[in-house]
Write a protein that binds this DNA or RNA. Structure first.
Lengths: 330, 330
DNA sequence: CTGAAAGCGCTAACAG
DNA sequence: CTGTTAGCGCTTTCAG
């Protein structure tokens, strides 16, 4: 492994000159540049980033904390963030926290020790006080999908509540007259908001009754069993809004097993807009602009890192209705 | 940000002692340990890992290169690797290569410069010569799913060929008498092997004909359209083996659209064993032991890093048939 | 335009 | 059991 010293020696210049050449800052004569370049090629020299980091106090690495990369929402987010990070020259450390506060703390610690330049956190469970360590080190943080109203942390979400409303409105438009709702964990802010949206739109109808709301957990199997319960309670329901696509898929399964035809007998809509093309009928959904969300988070984080004055902060992204087969009138 | 120096000063000992205390090597008196511990708490001191890395020549970080985290196979792999890495105290840098040779090269370079302790590569496109840089730096590498027979790189795969055979055998057992095959990209070794397995088992039957093999690309949509073509060619086929689960899901969709009932009219089996519970009917598959694969890769990488003598190398993992609804006889 | 030198924060001999 | 010291490889003043 050649070092900058080797290069400087062989090129007959000082390490400072090589460093200047490498970083394209400061003056380096044409001739010097040429020989240095040649020597670098010859030695196949590559700067050691660790040393660079130690000297320059920046690592060009960011941490990405997500609950669980197995949940298909997060690969999409991770991908968009990685792409954006890549363009900025950053590398991404992936951390699965499993919504486990302890793991979260541990990872924050690790990332801090590894001197990452910033962290993007998508967490259901994180609390303002968990961020104390970060605030103290004044390391840039961007939060996804979990807003601390009282707080100064930059964060991005989508119009969850409006989305829930939109879902119901769409089902109504498609002719539904008894809509059930499969809601996600009540511990999750965005989940609660989606359910609030459902209530906003359904409270003003004559068919609404609280028992149309079933409680679940954002998983396929959860959606499946909650759907079964709902079906037992309300055999004549004709529409379902699930707070995420995974549960909607589970609901679909339960409905089909119960002999209900989707969309003819019951229409189903989910939330998130993850790519679930493998499902028949294709699932209508309230889509989040996941890619944009990730990209914006990264843009904002870089702004924070570079201490740019006017970074984007606390944006709430719009959601869009994507109508597919599962809510269609044949 | 307190440093080891601050701690040593305040504790009235030398940095060496603090370092010894931190690393639990060498002797530190009970009293010294106590005061150091107190000072660390008071200062909220955390060792700077970058400095540690520079001094100790190890970063406790590994790189993970995958084609695309959006393909549901890779989150599972990534998760298992991250879990294992975590246990060993390693952090994972995630790199999406998109099967793009240039991106791969670029990432290898970046990881090298960041001085990662090792790299796990899952790539369809990587060639032995791309690994030259690594070999030269003698940095540990473990390959997944892409074996260079001629080469000395540690790599793990599964019994792809046997799996293909197994799939056909299962369909035959279930009563199929005309089985089509949706094969994946021919550029991918494991894909070719699965198809070879299909041929092994089907060549010896009387119904086999080459036009029963349709060429596709490992995606849902690819499986969908290839299935349509196969159906046009062989309307009376009664079994389908797709080289991965995503294509199998696409095939299912095409079959259902064509009015075929699965499994009654046509039975379908995939490959990989990714969690696709959202599909109805549930998909039979030839499952890879993904979690174990990732775990073993990490174990092996750590063995390489630590230069342990007897590391696991070049294992071929067995696959297992998981029979679900899609190949069931009702 | 260039070089010497002082760190960045930590580890690891080595000498007490 | 403890302290001194020499780096790890690079960046960055600050004089030339």
């Amino acid at each position: 492994m050649a070092t900058i010293k080797d290069v400087s020696k062989l090129a007959g210049v000082s390490v400072a000159t090589v460093s200047r050449y490498l970083n394209k800052n400061g003056y380096v004569s044409k001739e010097a540049a040429a020989t240095i370049s040649a020597v670098i090629d010859k030695l196949n020299y590559r700067p050691n980033n660790i040393a660079r980091s130690l000297a320059g106090m920046k690592t060009a690495t960011i941490g990405l904390m997500v609950p669980d990369i197995l949940n298909p929402f997060f690969p999409e987010l991770a991908r968009s963030i990685e792409d954006a990070a890549n363009e900025y020259g950053y590398t991404v450390m992936l951390c699965n926290t499993d919504n486990d506060s302890l793991k979260e703390q541990k990872y924050i610690d690790t990332l801090l020790q590894k001197q990452v330049d910033g962290i993007i956190i998508s967490s259901y469970t994180i609390e303002p006080e968990h961020l104390n360590g970060l605030q103290k080190q004044s390391i840039p943080v961007v939060l996804m999908d979990n807003v601390f109203s009282n707080d100064s942390v930059v964060s991005f979400t989508v119009e969850n509540r409006r989305g829930g409303e939109l879902a119901v409105e769409h089902l109504l438009t498609q002719g539904c007259s008894k809509i059930a709702h499969i809601c996600g964990p009540l511990t999750i802010t965005s989940s609660r908001e989606r359910t609030a949206g459902f209530e906003d739109a359904s409270r003003r109808t004559d068919w609404f009754t609280p028992s149309l709301i079933g409680y679940s957990d954002f998983t396929v199997n959860g959606g499946y069993s909650t759907m079964k319960e709902l079906l037992a309670l309300h055999p004549n329901l004709d529409g379902v809004f699930a707070s995420n696509d995974l549960m909607a898929a589970g609901a679909l399964k339960a409905l089909q097993e119960a002999g209900k035809r989707v969309p003819r007998d019951v229409k189903v809509i989910g939330f998130d807009g993850i790519g679930l093309e493998m499902i028949t009928p294709e699932l209508s959904t309230i889509a989040q602009p996941i890619y944009e969300l990730g990209k914006t988070a990264m843009d904002s984080l870089v702004g924070l890192i570079r201490k740019e004055p006017d970074i984007v902060t606390d944006r709430v992204f719009p959601v869009t209705l994507i109508a597919k087969q599962s809510t269609m009138n044949e």
